[in-house]
C-alpha cells in the first residue's frame, strides 16, 4: 500500500533533484543548502556571493509566495527555546565541519556514488536516529 504522503514525498523529491540537476548542469555548482549559506556566513563564498544570494533569496521567497495562497503550513516545530538553540547550533557547526548536509552529501553526493557523501549520510542518520531515541523515548523531551 502506498500512502498519499509518500507520493507527495516522491514528487517533491523529484523537484528537489531537478533543482539540483539544473544548478549543476547550467551553473556547474553543487546544490548544498549548508554550503551555499555557510560560504556567505564565513566569507569563503565571496567569489560567487550573488549566485548564493539569488538561490537563497528564491528559496525563501517562493515558499513565502505559495503560503499567500495556501495559508501557512504547520511546521510542528517545538516551542522549547533551549532545544531550538541547541539544535540550530549543532546543525550549523556539524554541517560546516562535514562540508555538507542532506542536500549536498545526501542528494548530490549519493547520486554521484561519492564515498564522502555516503559516509556522511550514514553518520548523520546515525546521529539523528540515536538522538530521537534518546530524547523521545528515554528522556521524553521531544
Amino acid at each position: 500500500m502506498i500512502e498519499i504522503d509518500w507520493i507527495y514525498g516522491l514528487i517533491g523529491g523529484l523537484m528537489i533533484g531537478a533543482a539540483a540537476a539544473t544548478f549543476l548542469l547550467f551553473n556547474g555548482r553543487i546544490m548544498g543548502a549548508s554550503g551555499l549559506l555557510g560560504g556567505l556566513v564565513d566569507g569563503t563564498g565571496r567569489g560567487n556571493w550573488t549566485e548564493r544570494a539569488a538561490f537563497i533569496g528564491a528559496l525563501v521567497a517562493v515558499p513565502a509566495a505559495v503560503t499567500l495562497f495556501t495559508g501557512q503550513p504547520d511546521t510542528h516545530l517545538t516551542s522549547n527555546v533551549a532545544v531550538i538553540i541547541a539544535a540550530g547550533l549543532l546543525v550549523g557547526i556539524g554541517t560546516r565541519l562535514a562540508n555538507g548536509c542532506t542536500s549536498g552529501h545526501g542528494v548530490c553526493g549519493i547520486s554521484r556514488l561519492s564515498l564522502r557523501g555516503i559516509v556522511a549520510t550514514v553518520f548523520y542518520l546515525l546521529g539523528g536516529g540515536l538522538t530521537v531515541l534518546a530524547f523521545r523515548h528515554v528522556l521524553e523531551v521531544i
Binding site: 540550530g88 553518520f123 546521529g127 538522538t131 530524547f135
Partner: peptide
C-alpha cells in the same frame, strides 16, 4: 566529516530541521 555529520544529525533529530527547510 564523521564527527561533523554526527553532530548535524543530532541537531536534525532534536528539532527536525536541516539547513534547506530551515531557510
Amino acid at each position: 566529516l564523521t564527527l561533523g555529520s554526527f553532530l548535524f544529525g543530532m541537531g536534525w533529530g532534536l528539532a527536525g530541521l536541516c539547513p534547506g527547510p530551515a531557510m
